[in-house]
């Protein structure tokens, strides 16, 4: 089964996101910040990362830049999932190597659509 890593400092968001992703037939793991997520990825690369932007310790963008320069780190699809909704942020995320971008709030249909767009479904 394919794996999705959910990275968010909010427990509620992690729970909701994991429920949705399981419905799409993915196994899930979670991290509460970028640094933890990076360690988790270095142990074993997930197929997709759902990534919050603002987190203590290491934020989403910093995590993504680190991930993309790690061995095998180009492989996971990375979908930002954040309250940042400015075009500038979306551009910054794409430049840093994000495959897709979801603006909170989201629902199952939006996540399913984004997974399909990046070729996961």
């Amino acid at each position: 089964m394919r794996t999705c890593l959910v990275v968010d400092d909010s427990k509620v968001v992690r729970t909701v996101a994991q429920r949705i992703v399981r419905e799409l037939d993915f196994e899930t793991r979670e991290s509460i910040n970028g640094l933890e997520a990076l360690e988790s990825c270095r142990k074993s690369m997930p197929d997709v990362v759902l990534l919050d932007w603002n987190m203590p310790v290491m934020n989403g963008i910093e995590f993504l830049r680190e991930l993309r320069t790690s061995p095998g780190g180009e492989r996971p699809k990375v979908i930002f999932c954040t309250t940042e909704t400015d075009a500038k942020c979306i551009e910054e995320a794409i430049t840093a190597g994000a495959d897709e971008y979801v603006m909170k709030p989201f629902d199952t249909e939006i996540i399913r659509g984004k997974f399909a767009q990046v070729g996961l479904l």
């Binding site: 979306i90 794409i94 989201f106 939006i110 984004k114």
Partner: peptide, 23 residues
Amino acid sequence: TQFEVQRGMPAKLLVKYFRKVDN
């Protein structure tokens, strides 16, 4: 709306062809 663009519009195309007006 934000909800409508997220249903189907890839992020790359969103920033390329749309402009944010209020929400």
